Simulated scan of single mutants.
Amino acid sequence: MATNKTLSASEIDDLPYRPCVGIMLLNEHDKVFVAQRIDNPGDAWQMPQGGIDQGEEPIEAALRELEEETGTANAELLAETPDWHTYDLPRELVPKIWKGRYRGQKQKWFVFRFKGQDSEINIDTEIPEFSEWRWADMSTLPDLIVPFKHELYTRLVKEFSYLIK
């Protein structure tokens, strides 16, 4: 599908969701790792996430994405969502992202406790996705993300707030 093709609402609705994982990385002070995407400069911050490769289990994808996007795998698994969460891209972005093959993403989310020092985090990875990073309060996550992921981040905060001491 061409990236400049206009898709009708029904064509978009018929597209599948891209299988993906998301990672909420908590530090020792219960702050969450968030970063600004290189390809979307502005005031939007997100948690690490990425696609699941063919034949890969979600937890394997989460560990791979954690290391690819933060430069570290020094973390302990705390929790995962029992269900998959979905979000839809804004309709005008569908033809431009993932070559127009997906309407959005279905994500399995994992929470890890970071066991290292901030100096271990390196977003200048082989294929960098982020320009900056910081630690944020979990309650602020929905206000930091792009608007079309606001509802997803609200659900994640509600689902994982029990992990905050």
Rank of each mutant, 00 (worst) to 15 (best):
D137N: 09
S161P: 01
Y102Q: 07
A136P: 06
A79V: 10
S161Q: 15
T86W: 09
D14M: 12
P48Y: 03
F33K: 03
D30I: 01
W45D: 10
K158C: 06
I164A: 00
Y87K: 09
E126F: 07
K149V: 12
I97N: 12
F33D: 05
D88M: 08
L78I: 14
G42V: 14
P41T: 02
E120T: 02
T154R: 13
K115G: 00
N40M: 15
L26T: 05
P95V: 03
T154V: 06
V94T: 03
K108A: 06
G71Y: 04
M138Y: 05
T70R: 05
R101S: 10
I164Y: 01
T72Y: 08
N4Y: 03
E92R: 14
P90G: 01
D143W: 03
P147L: 08
E60P: 02
R18Q: 15
R37A: 14
G100Q: 10
E92M: 11
Q36K: 15
E92P: 07
I59W: 00
R101Q: 11
K5V: 13
G22D: 12
P147V: 03
L89T: 03
K5Q: 11
L163V: 04
V21W: 02
N40Q: 13
L156D: 07
G22A: 04
N74I: 07
D14S: 15
G116F: 00
N4V: 02
S131Q: 11
V21P: 10
D137Q: 01
L78T: 12
Y17M: 08
Q46W: 02
V94N: 10
